[in-house]
């Protein structure tokens, strides 16, 4: 019986820039940051209150999970904002919204009451979309 999710991937255009976004802007903690040979880096971060969920920031590059062709295709899709990856929760969505805006995070939608939560929408530095949610 499966009980929990421990690792999940987000595909990013540049790991260095993703590090700044997820750690310095979103405030995530670095779990593992290790070179895996000359061309790969295993970089995982965790949400501050969820230290056992590792989010792997996987660089879209030929050689690892991608061929030259599939890497190019994936980059275009991510940049175009094709993917929504999940919902991050927070204590107070208005405070979090203001803080992230002050740090330069791009929002597509300000906090808005929806059926399931108060929700805002933002994108990471690669183009991946996330909901920011606060349950009422």
């Amino acid at each position: 019986m499966i009980s929990r999710l421990s690792h999940v991937s987000i595909f990013v255009l540049n790991q260095e820039s993703a590090y700044e976004f997820y750690v310095d802007k979103l405030g995530f903690r670095v779990h593992t940051d290790a070179p895996m040979g000359p061309d790969a880096r295993w970089l995982t971060v965790t949400p501050p209150d969820q230290p056992d969920l590792e989010i792997s920031l996987m660089q879209i590059a030929p050689g690892m999970m991608f061929t030259d062709e599939s890497a190019e295709a994936m980059k275009k899709l991510v940049q175009a904002g094709t993917f929504g990856f999940g919902v991050f929760e927070c204590v107070d969505i208005y405070a979090t919204y203001e803080e992230l805006k002050a740090k330069g995070v791009e929002f597509k939608k300000p906090p808005t009451k929806e059926f399931y939560a108060i929700e805002a929408l933002f994108r990471d530095d690669s183009g991946n979309w996330f909901s920011l949610g606060q349950k009422e």
Binding site: H7, S9, M36, G37, A40, W42, G63, M64, M65
Partner: peptide, 9 residues
């Protein structure tokens, strides 16, 4: 993930 990394390396 590591199976892919091993193949790449």
């Amino acid at each position: 993930f590591s199976a892919k990394l091993a193949v790449a390396q």
